[in-house]
């Protein structure tokens, strides 16, 4: 069981309190009703699923209830950092990948 740092509770909490919520930094288009099929496909269906550092959403569902973002290495299964919703995607070069 991992420990995950919740950026709202400001401490590490057991994984059992969290739920994964898919890839991060995919904004719903403002004019979603108008976009073309290809744009909708990119928005709704296509995910990066990289080997290595991935940016993903989590929710502290059995804690503060907040959604937040995380950078996690899918190879080592390490959380590199977590940050609040609305904060910019962190610069990969500045993340300590250990």
């Amino acid at each position: 069981m991992l420990l995950i740092h919740c950026p709202y509770c400001e401490e590490e909490r057991p994984e059992l309190e969290f739920r994964h919520a898919g890839e991060a930094h995919i904004a719903r288009p403002e004019n979603i009703a108008e976009i073309a099929d290809e744009a909708f496909q990119r928005y709704f269906f296509i995910r990066a699923n990289p080997k290595g550092v991935t940016f993903e959403r989590w929710r502290h569902i059995h804690g503060c209830g907040r959604f937040f973002n995380a950078a996690r290495d899918t190879v080592s299964d390490r959380f590199l950092m977590t940050y609040r919703v609305g904060e910019p995607k962190p610069d990969l070069r500045k993340i300590d990948r250990k």
Binding site: R59, G65, G86
Partner: peptide
């Protein structure tokens, strides 16, 4: 509720 919270917190904050 999770679905509604998701939109409220992340798309329509």
């Amino acid at each position: 509720l999770h679905h509604m919270e998701d939109y409220l917190q992340t798309e329509f904050p």
